[in-house]
């Protein structure tokens, strides 16, 4: 129920921001379309902790600035590699194991890896990931496991808020 209310209010806020109208008739139309979307999402059975992860919001605000800084650093690294006349790349595929317990945590981790230039997640199965890395430096940066530890905190398993689904 909490997820339904939060999804509905998020959608209506989005509608308000994108339209910018405040007249009665148009507001009613916006409410109608929001309600329709909530009903459809309910029928699709996507309103749960995975489709609408409200519980991660607070911890995500701590994680995203760190991720942004990582993004900047790896972007500069890869840009330097691309502009280098000799193109010093060492493409490799490595297999790593995440320490997350929920599927949502694994997806967050895999998406963070793909988002940082220099590493792309090729496959994710049973917690094992195949990563394609462009340079040795980007592979080593991933293997230090700092991102893994941070995503582990984000999914809420570190302090026991979320139990693993197995």
């Amino acid at each position: 129920m909490l997820h339904t209310i939060s999804l509905g209010s998020t959608l209506f806020a989005l509608w308000l921001l994108l339209s910018g109208y405040l007249e009665m008739w148009l507001l009613a139309l916006g409410l109608g379309s929001t309600a329709l979307m909530v009903i459809i999402a309910n029928r699709m059975d996507v309103i749960d902790h995975e489709g609408h992860p409200v519980h991660m919001t607070w911890r995500l605000t701590m994680y995203l600035p760190w991720l942004a800084w990582e993004l900047v650093k790896s972007n500069i690294d890869i840009a330097r590699v691309i502009l280098h006349p000799k193109l010093p790349i060492q493409p490799m595929v490595i297999k790593i194991k995440g320490s997350q317990v929920t599927e949502l945590g694994y997806v967050t981790y895999a998406n963070s890896i793909t988002l940082t230039p220099g590493t792309v997640t090729l496959a994710l199965e049973n917690g094992e990931m195949e990563i394609h890395a462009l340079t040795t430096a980007s592979a080593e940066g991933l293997l230090t496991g700092e991102m893994d530890a941070r995503v582990h905190i984000v999914e809420g398993a570190a302090d026991g808020t979320v139990k693993g689904a197995g």
Binding site: N75, I78, A79, I82, L83, P117, H132
Partner: peptide, 29 residues
């Protein structure tokens, strides 16, 4: 400048998987 570098990477890098990193630069930063 970063988008240009990403485009150059997309042109220069040798295969699909490495080119994804070049496209990543355009898409993110």
């Amino acid at each position: 400048a970063l988008m240009l570098i990403g485009g150059i990477g997309l042109y220069r890098l040798p295969d699909v998987y490495t080119r994804m990193h070049g496209a990543g630069i355009i898409d993110t930063l």
